[in-house]
Design a protein around this nucleic acid. Sequence first.
DNA 1: TAGTGGTCTAGACCACCCG
DNA 2: GGGTGGTCTAGACCACTAG
Lengths: 242, 242
Amino acid sequence: MRSRETLIPVYYRLAEDIKQQIEAGVLKDGDLIPTETQLGEQYGVSRMTVRQGISLLAEAGLIETVKGKGSFVTRPRLNQLVIDLKNNGADNEQLCYKLINVNLIRNKSDLATELGFIGETNIITLKRLLFRKNLPIAIEEKFLRYQKGKPLLETMLEYADLPELVAKHQDSVPVRNDVVISVSALSTEQAELLEANEGLPALVVKQVIFAKEDKPLGVSVMVCHKDRFELKATSYPISGRL
Amino acid sequence: MRSRETLIPVYYRLAEDIKQQIEAGVLKDGDLIPTETQLGEQYGVSRMTVRQGISLLAEAGLIETVKGKGSFVTRPRLNQLVIDLKNNGADNEQLCYKLINVNLIRNKSDLATELGFIGETNIITLKRLLFRKNLPIAIEEKFLRYQKGKPLLETMLEYADLPELVAKHQDSVPVRNDVVISVSALSTEQAELLEANEGLPALVVKQVIFAKEDKPLGVSVMVCHKDRFELKATSYPISGRL
DNA sequence: TAGTGGTCTAGACCACCCG
DNA sequence: GGGTGGTCTAGACCACTAG
């Protein structure tokens, strides 16, 4: 039984319908939704099609299916936040970058160890300043393993973010990205770059990219002027894809 | 053609195989993976089964499928981070809560407006202190719309996080959760509670929970001692489900 | 036009859960 | 044992892309 008059797929309509019922409170946390067979009859559709819709809901975190029992409505886990580091602080306002310096540091195994680059002695460091409306808002310093035969283009240095840089410069495939957000005070040098007072509190975002087996590929430390930069995030689950 | 000797589903093995190839660098960013028909022949399996595996990879962000063209390997978007607010700063160390106060504020429409509770005059506020090893690490203040006939239990006040509290106290279904992370200085009162000096920089995590149509349900503001609390996050895409 | 992924069917057998 | 979701089949038609 097709319903191809409508342009949107049946499984999508089914998922949307159930989502509405959950958001309207008709289906509550812990409730069982109709079985796949029932939904199939209800929509005049085969079970595989129903399952496609169900899986959308499960993906979005609206339901949880349990083998042998059924699919339960779950309160969305709003504590899982998604932060988009790339476009943060942007807000459609023109953000610009200014490259401060690029260095190749050789044979500084102490620095390498500190960064977690075990056995690595050559490290590329690059520092840039982020501006919004001619006002410096953050200092960003990156550390990368040096890899022979993978030149870094000037334009890339200026514009790329850490994951992009790592992807372009390294052969290893990035697999994980850990971030720590903390607070510190501006050093003399940092204060000068940010046109602020020494000792002013700053938001620090430290990011480490790993390949398989916890091999660190790159580190990025962003020191942000407290009054000119905020990190924003939105929870993902419920109004994500659906 | 079944391969039921192995206990794990075929579609899962297929996805795992392709994931290995991507992580090993055999399949690179932008590469086309074999077509669904080819994979079906290769694994001796029907196309729907192949699609199930493919969809796992797409979910994990390892590939992107384009209608009429094929499925392309994509560099994982590591800029999308997942932060688990609930278990943050916990690190298996015993975290405890101390309830400071609970208030029902009536007819303070200015406060309600400030919080975004339009047309609402009765607000519940509750403040608690977070400890780790008897050291105060953060002050958390929550603001909720007051809803009649939904009592708040003492134990809940002390232990629940914001999404949980909102879910229990409100009929409206939470749909979105916005978070802003910033830096501020401790007030006299805050400094006293945190056993720290006034003016000390602090990490501020403000969280707003919304129902449909941007109706705010609850607000939480967490002020964290800079040396006793860090926010940690790990990127999700690549090594998430698969 | 040939090839691709997107949707969908009408079955099947299985493992799991519960009364 | 009866019901549930999990896996899988061998087809089908469609919309889209590209040469």
